[in-house]
Amino acid sequence: MTISEPISEVDVEVTVNGQPQRHRVPARLLLSDYIRDTVGLTGTHLGCEHGYCGACTVIVDGDAVRSCLMLAAQVDGAEVRTVEDLAPAGADSLSPMQQAFHDNHALQCGFCTAGFLMTLESVDPTEWNEPERVVELLSGNLCRCTGYQNIVTAVTEAWSAYDGSGGSDDG
């Protein structure tokens, strides 16, 4: 929906992890704070609130974005996915990427993990599964604990079924 007159509170209708949400929010509310405080999903973390650390990465209409650099008002009509959407609801199992992070010690404090997982979830592995490309992809997320090596190992393991040259073995 378009809004022609400037207003201080905005109506937002958005799907978050498959659930429809409807709120009237202050124009200045960041998407990150909307997700954490209004919707109540605190898996999305905030490190810097100026676009550098990537901890707040979520998926909006299929694209990985910094939720601290979008307004809640801007996702009106969009589909948002957060880390809570990765493991099937109610199941005890993790997604394959989450499991690979677990198995390879790809997290220590875990503050950065949701951001890494959402960046990885947003891309087509068949386009990114080459060592240099994986490193390039992960360059937008900071981790202060692991030294990254175990994260790269986890991604390589989770994506081992894909060849990164543009086609996939099993899709």
Partner: peptide
């Protein structure tokens, strides 16, 4: 967080 402002999304 940003200070308050008014927002519009023209067509």
């Amino acid at each position: 967080k940003p200070a308050p402002f008014d927002y519009c999304r023209p067509a």
